[in-house]
Nucleic acid binder design. Structure first.
Lengths: 268, 268
DNA sequence: ATTCGTATGTACGATATCGCACAGTGATGC
DNA sequence: GCATCACTGTGCGATATCGTACATACGAAT
């Protein structure tokens, strides 16, 4: 892969003095951005804007016009659908493995879902105009983004099936794994209430399911902090949906989640 | 729109004598194909192969390699996800408004779902090589197919939400409307059993729901033939999901379903 | 007309989730 | 230290759907 040696990286630094790398993390933290060639990086880096994404921030509303695409570095963004009744369900999760705002380059300009920050962190963003321009060069970014979009299709269809056939217990496991893959530690800041919103179930249902997992020693939590203690057990208890999506995403994007030993392991 | 006058149509006939239009219906019956410019049509028509699609035919298996994309004319194809347990759920429906096999041009080559003919009819198909070549010209077909893919994203995410929050009764209405929009009559050949497979529920659940609709005079059925008598009522009884998907698809593709007066109305 | 396979109708207990209500309990701020 | 709020635990009846079992009825084929 390009960028594996120091000289190339230095060339970028020289060409793109606009971005102060000491302040903000490297765009490379986003897998999609890191997979680009040196040429494309030289073109795109100066256009990227680093933005902190506080918990709960809404990147775009359902039906609203998108003005940027976001490449999360260490944040997690949920694509959430909110119904007329107020009931909601998470359609997809995006972390440093993806991009938020595919409808910008797919041609639709808007989507019927809302993008909301589920785990605070940051992202690099690119204005609508720039992403379209780059997309229309019909180069590697187009290919990459299309493959990512296909992985989104998989994620969404699997969510549909999971919602139909699996228990809250199983879905909680799946959800925890999806989040875990996109975090650099084994701890997530998340209340039962918020998870319930994502899964589209009652808060009490999540409390029940989480209680069982805690009794089993798989997770540990208190007041908005969930620590995963036994990830293999979580995978075992989860429905097949997690593995299907992960395998397909790996296939499409050679996505590599942070391995256990690269993580900051927390015990609370 | 192009092709509104006779001279252009004749030009095509001269240029593409390979396709015998008297045997097979026009590719124009597929909305995506009909939206192309004259130039593109001249290029594509000779490559299209007309194929009858009998009920139940599997266009591709989950994980299998796709060798063609299909543009249904009067057939309906379901994208069906079948789980390890054998339980299934319909992810999306494709009729003359769309194309089957988006993963071919999205770059994935395969998908974890199965494409199965839900309503017999025919389609035009294009070999993998040809659709990729045309896609890589980066012309109007690319734009069109990307917008269609976005409408697929909408359809899938709405399915996910619907599976989570709506009753079998509501979902049956939504499903009937989706099928109706893709048929040229008000009658569908479909057993409760098959509908149950699509919705991912029990057959008895469908029988119950259909029984209620029949009692209300909204539909009429016997042994695999369902006749819709009161479409407005169906829309009223359906959840919002139908309308959301329809509006979004209209917006993205200017899709126009067959209007009531253009239909062959059947009473059984 | 009879037969037979398939489609549909119905019933009933089991289960999962819901909706609601309220009781603890940890964290945070004054 | 205390008050307060947000988060979590728990209980209970209501409801929807499930799984299963079996009855009925249509219609195609002989």
């Amino acid at each position: 892969m390009a960028y594996s040696n120091g000289s190339e990286r230095r060339a970028i630094d020289v060409l793109c003095p606009v971005i102060d790398m000491s302040d903000s993390p490297s765009p490379e933290q986003n897998h999609l951005l890191s997979m680009l060639s040196a040429d494309t990086k030289v073109r795109l880096w100066p256009l990227l804007e680093w933005v902190p994404l506080p918990l709960g921030k809404v990147l775009y509303e359902a039906g609203g016009v998108l003005d940027h695409v976001y490449f999360p570095t260490d944040s997690i963004v949920s694509l959430l659908y909110v119904m007329e009744s107020g009931a909601s369900a998470e359609i997809s999760v995006v972390g440093n493995d993806g991009i938020v705002g595919v409808s910008l380059f797919m041609g639709g300009e808007s989507t019927p879902s809302r993008a909301v920050v589920q785990s605070a962190g940051a992202a690099y963003r690119l204005p609508a105009k720039q992403i379209k321009e780059e997309f229309n060069r019909h180069g590697e970014l187009l290919l990459l983004l299309l493959r990512y979009t296909q992985s989104l299709l998989t994620q969404m269809s699997q969510t549909a099936v999971c919602n139909r056939h699996h228990s809250v217990d199983q879905q909680l496991c799946r959800w925890l794994l999806l989040s875990l893959d996109r975090l650099s530690s084994n701890q997530l800041k998340m209340t039962h209430e918020l998870i319930a919103n994502m899964l589209g179930v009652r808060r009490e249902g999540v409390t029940d399911a989480a209680g069982k997992l805690q009794k089993l020693g798989v997770i540990e939590y208190r007041r908005g902090k969930i620590t995963v203690l036994d990830r293999p057990a979580l995978e075992h208890l989860s429905c097949e949906c997690y593995a299907v999506v992960k395998n397909e995403t790996d296939r499409l994007l050679s996505y590599r989640p942070l391995t256990a030993d690269a993580k900051v392991v927390v015990r609370n």
